[in-house]
Amino acid sequence: MTASKRASAPSLGSDLNRVDRHVIQPAEYDDLPELTDEMLARGVVNKGGRPRAANPKRLISIRLTEDVIQRWRATGPGWQTRMAEKLSSSAPK
């Protein structure tokens, strides 16, 4: 049995066109509280993202045989970190 109608795209359930057409009227500003110096003083600028690492990692490319990769992957999640720690501890000083 074949369907005779095409499935419609899922809807967000909102009328974005109506929202875009709305023009703010002066009376709507009465709903907003007066901005005071006290309110501004409580404001905090929050920079998003992670803090900078003291010793950031650098992306490189390295070729390893498939059996080496599979042995490290078999150790479970975090295998790349464990590999980096092992290489770091055995590196010449």
Rank of each mutant, 00 (worst) to 15 (best):
T2E: 14
T2C: 12
K5A: 15
P10Q: 04
P10E: 05
P10R: 02
G13H: 01
L16I: 14
N17S: 11
R18P: 00
V19I: 14
V19W: 08
D20W: 11
D20F: 14
Q25S: 10
Q25P: 01
A27H: 02
A27K: 07
A27F: 10
E28G: 08
E28L: 12
E28M: 11
Y29L: 15
Y29K: 03
Y29N: 00
P33G: 09
E34I: 10
L35T: 10
T36M: 02
D37M: 10
D37G: 06
M39C: 09
M39W: 07
A41W: 11
G43R: 01
V45N: 05
V45C: 14
N46I: 11
G48Q: 10
G49D: 08
R50I: 06
P51H: 00
P51C: 00
A53Q: 03
A54P: 08
A54G: 03
A54K: 15
N55K: 13
N55C: 05
P56T: 08
P56A: 02
K57Y: 15
K57N: 12
L59Q: 05
L59M: 15
L59N: 10
I60V: 11
S61D: 13
I62A: 08
R63W: 12
L64K: 02
T65P: 05
E66H: 06
E66W: 04
E66L: 12
V68C: 12
I69P: 00
I69G: 07
I69Q: 00
R71M: 08
R71V: 15
R71F: 14
R71I: 07
W72C: 07
R73Q: 05
A74Y: 07
T75Y: 03
G76W: 07
G76M: 08
G76F: 05
P77M: 11
P77Y: 07
P77W: 12
G78V: 13
G78R: 06
Q80F: 09
R82V: 05
R82P: 00
M83N: 00
E85L: 04
E85T: 06
L87I: 15
L87G: 01
L87Y: 08
L87D: 01
S89D: 12
S90V: 15
A91G: 09
P92N: 05
K93G: 08
